[in-house]
Design a protein around this nucleic acid. Structure first.
Lengths: 103, 103
DNA sequence: CTTTCTACTTACTTTATGTAAGTAATTATA
DNA sequence: TATAATTACTTACATAAAGTAAGTAGAAAG
């Protein structure tokens, strides 16, 4: 692998999006904060990877994990401002897919 | 893996974008048609994967491969209309990355 | 006649993803 | 009371995808 010539920020963004499940998790969270098992069943990811991805997205400042100390505890994941700012991008993907892909 | 509840077209589009290198190849080809080795060195992908990705993108109708029977032969890859229609999406990624990521 | 270039392919290693089961705390059901 | 279910994970292992390096074939250049 040779060094690339493309803008490093763009490459980084692509690196994020090109990780499996990352885009779908963000897309799903654009509907509002959600619990682990809700995300899991809505996009069909396994717990193992969802856990891994959410940690990574938290580290990137895209997702926040909130613990509500009720009984039983409730844990919710939601988008930060940085995460929500991905909405126009997601809309573009939606638009393109409606125009150019079959279901 | 459970069945997902997300729009299948959106999922398909995400599946495309979330394959490593695919986005960068398309981004690169938005600058105009290019030869194998040019794409290879501009994004830093290996020949093995570039070959694989270009075949897939051709199958998806996003890229066309053209052979110019000169001596020596010249082979160029370019975007179809479907491929070029990804430009607004790419611009959004660019925009987001400029605002929210560090290089 | 050996090296270089282009557009690949093949063989092999490493990393990522998928699958299944397990855990701990709590709650619901028979 | 015992058993099953729920939530938010983790662990262990199998398979698939990606990375690395070398090879190939045809042509041209030194």
């Amino acid at each position: 692998m040779n060094p690339s010539v493309i803008c490093p920020r763009f490459e980084k963004a692509m690196g994020l999006l090109s990780q499996r499940w990352t885009g779908l998790i963000i897309y799903q969270l654009l509907n509002g904060s959600q619990r682990f098992c809700t995300i899991e069943s809505s996009i069909g990811i396994s717990g193992r990877l969802l856990s891994e991805r959410l940690k990574e997205l938290e580290k990137q400042g895209i997702v926040i994990r909130e613990v509500f100390p009720e009984i039983p505890v409730r844990i919710e994941y939601s988008l930060t401002e940085k995460g929500r700012s991905l909405q126009p991008l997601m809309k573009e993907i939606e638009k393109w897919s409606q125009t150019w892909l079959e279901p």
